[in-house]
Amino acid sequence: MGYRIGQKITGTVTGIQPYGVFVSLDATVQGLIHISECGHGFVKALDEQFTVGQVLEVLVLDIDEYTHKISLSLRALDRGQDLVPQRTKKHYWTNRRIHIGFAPIAQRLPQWTKEAIEDLNKGENA
């Protein structure tokens, strides 16, 4: 296998699954473009974007030396999108007024300590 990480390769789509697209790189080597590497942002349905037999230029992201699986990316080659993340306001959905912290542990600690001491005493008496 003569492929390297970071290498641009042309391959042919051989299969489409909900989680990714299988691409034949040559007669014996096949790679996978995971759905997260098919494009920027939300990717709705891969079977609407790709067809079996379609020729794609992909980038080698990773090669597992043990299993010889190759991870591919289209997203890394897409220069049409702005690759700098846009600042967005973060929304926190938790209730910030509740501060539990270590309270549950503090409530159970006396019982745990008592049980541990009992277990130790049982071991000494055996």
Rank of each mutant, 00 (worst) to 15 (best):
M1P: 07
M1H: 03
R4N: 15
R4H: 03
R4G: 03
I5W: 00
I5H: 03
Q7N: 13
Q7R: 04
K8L: 04
K8R: 13
T10A: 11
T10I: 14
G11T: 06
T12R: 12
T12V: 10
V13K: 01
V13T: 02
V13N: 05
G15F: 01
G15S: 15
Q17M: 10
P18K: 01
P18C: 02
Y19M: 04
G20S: 05
V21M: 01
V21S: 01
V21H: 00
L25G: 03
L25E: 02
L25D: 02
T28Q: 14
T28M: 05
Q30W: 01
G31T: 04
L32M: 15
S36K: 11
E37I: 06
G39I: 00
G39C: 02
G39V: 00
G39F: 00
V43W: 00
A45I: 07
L46S: 02
L46V: 01
L46F: 01
D47I: 01
D47P: 02
E48L: 11
G53V: 02
G53W: 00
G53M: 02
Q54Y: 02
Q54T: 05
V60W: 01
L61T: 13
L61V: 10
D62K: 15
D62C: 12
I63Q: 02
E65D: 10
Y66S: 14
Y66A: 15
Y66N: 14
Y66T: 05
T67S: 14
T67G: 08
H68M: 07
S71V: 03
L72C: 06
L74G: 00
R75S: 06
R75E: 08
A76C: 06
R79W: 03
G80I: 09
G80T: 13
P85V: 01
Q86L: 06
K89Q: 09
K90E: 05
K90A: 08
H91C: 09
Y92S: 11
N95V: 06
R96C: 06
R96S: 11
R97K: 11
I98R: 05
I98H: 08
H99S: 10
H99W: 12
G101N: 13
A103R: 09
P104N: 09
A106V: 04
Q107W: 07
R108G: 05
L109Y: 13
Q111W: 14
W112K: 12
W112L: 15
T113K: 15
E115K: 04
A116E: 12
I117V: 14
D119K: 12
L120Q: 12
N121D: 15
K122D: 13
G123W: 05
G123K: 08
G123C: 13
G123M: 15
E124F: 12
A126W: 13
A126E: 15
